[in-house]
Design a protein around this nucleic acid. Structure first.
Length: 923
RNA sequence: GCCCGAAUGGUGGAAUGGUAGACACGAGGGACUUAAAAUCCCUUGGCCAUAGCGGCUGUGCGGGUUCGAGUCCCGCUUCGGGCACCA
């Protein structure tokens, strides 16, 4: 029969589904391998051809591993909570559950057609109560935990409470919101409210009055990674800083481990680097500066450059710093208040765009703890309240920000490094020899910066002026959202005290509308009887989008377990994700939160691996390739791209589905829109209308969306899969261009036609020739190496070459087809499955076949051809015996008739023979 | 500003320091066909030569290392990505 992709693929699919081929269970007799894709958010638009790129790559890898004897876990699910479904619900009143379910069905249908080897019995959706029960459970465990920094792990809150009862806060080194000091006696006399306040300071999930990113347009707060340049990532609405009571996760407690853990992961360097930047470790010192004339007060600062202590010419406080009110002198009060007001009225976005130097003198002076110099204390918004201590020592000579401030307010600049020119700008480099750095018992003069840094730290600690400290930029994650479509936070308020509500799942209630209430309460404020059975009010905020996606990979291991997130046996078998495929845009969101979440679960003994994703591959984005027609201004005439320069034209997007190889389908265009019905055209010399094109984001408004269903309909899933891989390296972003798909389609048909003719099967039992075996084994070698290296585009090319060779040799040997079918099974599973059954007569799935063994002996040649170059430039080839010695090769190269011409009477200086590579003759 | 990454034909892209441009698209030419589709064959980086053999040049720019550099090193340019008053 002719290659009929619809029939072939349907038959293969039916076979897989009827035989449950992709179901996977724990099997201790086989090694496991866990291949995971980042699960999609099911949007209303459905999948476009960009989405399956990563899924196809991971599916190839999963199938390859399975063919190599691994027990492969390869699941798929849906990240179902999120803003678009809720926005849609607000507009239409339709329950987000319904639209979400519809979207998921559509996604499933689309995915089903592409032939993935997912075990659908393990699917999860984050909005199922049976699933989010475990999201809520993890939250409560965080609520009941604190981070013991001396032990380097999370511990149960009960340990901490016991310690407080016995020793107070003495001897506790915890990750905390602020340093607390109290005795056991004080603890014992505290009432429930006071104790709650103390414990909130330590809990890993805690309620705090924090400065948050508030987005009025979305009506919710956002995490740092959901904000970019002062605008919400979703929607692009302005975000303001606001102080609000919010649930937070103490992610910062894990900053050090999150950073160090990166070293052992097989992730791309760029992604690791992005996470390192985001976590932002800086090592330095915290120091106290006394306030002149105020024995009751000292200012604590953080600096990474304690070596520049002699260059401090002023100090700066963040506007929000509590010190500001305490030290401002009476005569400066009005000026300071005015400044604070002006700052308060600027939004975050205005501050970012307009980076003027602003600030005000407080009237107070601080004392340099080493040199004893008196220095003025200023307030400026270039110092951030949320980092370090919210106060800095300013060293204008060696910090560009301090320098700008000093120049603007005419404050002194003292250079500390020999030869540093600070007349125009600061000298920020950590190189050079120290000068002007002696006093108070410390002498850094003559030292290198690195030595001075070490010496200054030693001195500061020895004299008790401060202590060495590591700070991280990573902030705690705000965990409250003022939205409906998310997991309820399982907390109730008993006499105003937040208390765990542990009858899980706490199901999302029905409400009449999805907007916040009139009095500003989140939408859950509309739910009737949103109380515990005892009548205590439940939390009205819901969890953020990243909550449900932080541990979903664990749930796939044991998706129907109602007793635990994952059973110990399932966790011990599947352990962690071996290969994770997804977009790099999750670098500072999901991939940080998941790692944090997993490390916490590891600390409490719920999982046995510290890191969730061992190897990670970032697939590139598929961009759209938009097509344009050119309308001549004020007419209804369209001019072809190559002639448009002669006219004054307006480019108009046209649907790429009406364009083939940049040639516009004119009848389709005329019926596309009423206004184009009587369009006229100026065609090219070939009588066709050629469209222009540009690479843009794939989106409906650009009319450049290519739907995988259409591709499957026209070419079949196998062709789509091969073509997506053929397009280029998986990691690389590239525009989708349907133009090349015909080549892959041709290849598939050629492959098919080699073994089928009309209704006849052409497979025979002939002995394959040495040539075809060579061709086959070259392919085995290449494809195996390529899949291991996650490089699929060159594999597809290798298949094309091999099949061309087989077709030319008319080789239809079973001995060749059998390994060939297995080799191509990861790429074109439908085709492979049918060949396996029909042409080869097997009664089991190709998925259970063994990966073909590569044998070097088929590639061994008796003679080899070597290029001979003169001074590196190749001139001619020689053929020698494969086992010829260097001397023989050299002799053969010089004996060749062509040698004379290139030697041209010159003497041979040197001959380099690289066995199997090249002969280079230097003359 | 800081930190990554990239740059190769008309296009997508191949090349463990060893014959640059595999494979595919597109284009041009040809075969088959009443015709179309499908299929097959040839050419296809540039320049020169061409009856035929062939020659020169060429991987963003400038240097360097090497017998030999798209690949390694130094200095630029451009484009993408991340972080960004983080002291």
């Amino acid at each position: 029969m002719e290659y009929n992709h619809k029939e072939i693929e349907q038959r293969a699919r039916r076979y897989w589904e009827e035989n449950d081929v992709y179901r996977v269970e724990i099997d201790k007799s086989r090694p496991k391998y866990y291949v995971l894709d980042m699960f999609p958010y099911p949007s209303g638009a459905g999948l476009h051809v960009g989405h399956p790129l990563g899924y196809i790559a991971s599916d190839i890898y999963a199938r390859y591993k399975r063919l190599n004897g691994f027990n492969v876990l390869h699941p798929m699910g849906f990240d179902a909570y999120g803003l678009p479904a809720e926005q849609y619900a607000i507009q239409t009143g339709q329950h987000p559950e319904i639209t979400t379910r519809q979207n998921i069905e559509r996604y499933c249908e689309q995915l089903r057609k592409i032939g993935f080897s997912f075990d659908w019995s393990r699917t999860v959706r984050t909005c199922d109560p049976a699933y989010y029960k475990w999201t809520q459970w993890a939250f409560l465990r965080m609520f009941d935990s604190w981070y013991d920094r001396s032990a380097g792990r999370a511990r149960a809150l009960s340990d901490l409470i016991a310690h407080f009862g016995a020793h107070g806060s003495e001897g506790i080194d915890a990750a905390q919101t602020k340093q607390l000091n109290f005795t056991a006696e004080q603890w014992k006399t505290m009432d429930a409210a006071a104790r709650n306040e103390v414990l909130m300071n330590y809990r890993l999930a805690y309620l705090a009055n924090a400065i948050v990113n508030w987005c009025p347009k979305l009506g919710t707060v956002l995490a740092n990674d959901e904000v970019c340049e002062g605008l919400s990532v979703r929607g692009g609405y302005p975000v303001e800083q606001k102080k609000m009571w919010q649930w937070c996760l103490r992610v910062s407690a894990y900053a050090g481990r999150l950073l160090d853990g990166l070293d052992n992961l097989q992730w791309s360097d760029s992604l690791k680097e992005t996470q390192r930047n985001w976590i932002g470790r800086s090592q330095g010192a915290e120091m106290r500066f006394a306030v002149d004339g105020r024995s009751d007060l000292s200012l604590e600062i953080f600096t990474t450059r304690p070596d520049t202590i002699f260059g401090v010419t002023f100090m700066v406080l963040a506007p929000e710093s509590k010190y500001v009110q305490q030290i401002t002198t009476t005569d400066r009060r009005t000026a300071v208040d005015e400044y604070l007001d002006s700052i308060r009225n600027r939004t975050e976005r205005e501050r970012m765009i307009d980076r003027r130097v602003t600030g005000v003198f407080t009237g107070a002076y601080a004392v340099n703890p080493v040199s004893g110099a008196k220095i003025p204390v200023w307030v400026s918004d270039y110092v951030l309240a949320g980092y370090g201590t919210g106060a800095i020592m300013a060293v204008p000579a060696h910090d560009s920000r301090d320098y700008a401030f000093a120049r603007h307010f005419d404050l002194p600049v003292i250079p500390l490094i020999e030869g540093a020119d600070v007349s125009e700008s600061s000298y920020d480099a950590k190189e050079g020899t120290m000068i002007n750095s002696c006093g108070g018992g410390l002498d850094l003069n003559g030292m290198s910066v690195a030595d001075a840094l070490a010496e200054a730290k030693r001195f500061i600690e020895a004299r008790g002026l401060g202590k060495v400290k590591t700070n991280y930029r990573l902030r705690d994650a705000i965990f409250s959202r003022q939205r409906y479509w998310g997991e309820p936070i399982p907390v109730c308020y008993v006499d105003g005290i937040p208390t765990a509500y542990d009858r899980l799942p706490l199901e999302l209630p029905e409400i009449d509308k999805y907007l916040p209430t009139e009095n500003g309460e989140p939408p859950l404020g509309r739910a009737k009887d949103w109380n515990t059975p005892e009548g205590y009010p439940l939390e009205l905020n819901t969890m953020p989008g990243f909550a449900g996606s932080s541990a979903y990979y664990l749930r796939y291991m044991d998706p129907h377990n109602d007793e635990a997130l994952v059973s110990e046996s399932a966790d011990e078998y599947w352990r962690q994700v071996d290969l994770y495929v997804g977009g790099a845009e999750h670098a500072t969101g999901h991939l940080i939160y998941s790692r944090f979440w997993n490390k916490f679960l590891y600390d409490i003994g719920a999982v046995c691996e510290d890191e969730p994703f061992r190897k990670l591959v970032n697939q590139g984005m598929i961009q759209g390739r938009s097509s344009f027609v050119y309308r001549i201004k004020d007419t209804n005439t369209f001019v072809t791209a190559e002639k448009r320069d002669a006219y004054d034209t307006t480019p108009i997007h046209v649907d790429v589905n009406m364009v083939s190889n940049d040639i516009l389908d004119l009848p389709a265009f005329k019926t596309w829109r009423p206004e184009f019905a009587d369009a006229e055209f100026i065609l090219g010399d070939d009588g066709r209308y050629t469209c222009g094109w540009a690479v843009e984001k794939m989106s409906k408004s650009m009319y450049n969306v290519v739907n995988p269903d259409d591709m499957v309909e026209r070419y079949g899933a196998d062709t789509l899969r091969l073509y997506e891989m053929f397009l280029g390296p998986v990691e690389q972003s590239k525009p989708w261009d349907t133009n090349g798909i015909d080549g892959v389609f041709r290849f598939i048909r050629k492959f098919w036609n080699l073994y089928y003719k009309a209704d006849e099967l052409l497979v025979d039992d002939s002995e394959p020739s040495a040539e075809t075996l060579k061709s086959l084994h070259k392919l085995i070698k290449k494809v195996t190496a390529d899949i291991e290296a996650f490089s699929f585009n060159t594999s597809v090319a290798a298949f094309m070459i091999c099949v061309n060779e087989l077709a030319a040799a008319k080789c239809r040997s079973r001995q060749v087809l059998e390994p060939l079918a297995v080799l191509i099974a990861p790429f074109a599973p439908h085709l492979a499955e049918l060949l396996w059954h029909d042409a080869l007569g097997h009664d089991y799935t190709v998925c259970d076949a063994p990966w073909p063994a590569f044998d070097e002996k088929y590639l061994v040649e008796s003679t080899i051809t070597l290029p001979v170059s003169f001074n590196g430039k190749t001139r001619y080839n020689i053929t020698v015996a494969a086992d010829a010695s260097r001397e023989d090769v050299q002799a053969a190269a010089l004996a060749d008739p062509a040698a004379e011409k290139w030697l041209d009477g010159k003497a041979v200086k040197k001959v380099i023979v690289v066995p199997g590579r090249i002969v280079n003759i230097v003359v």
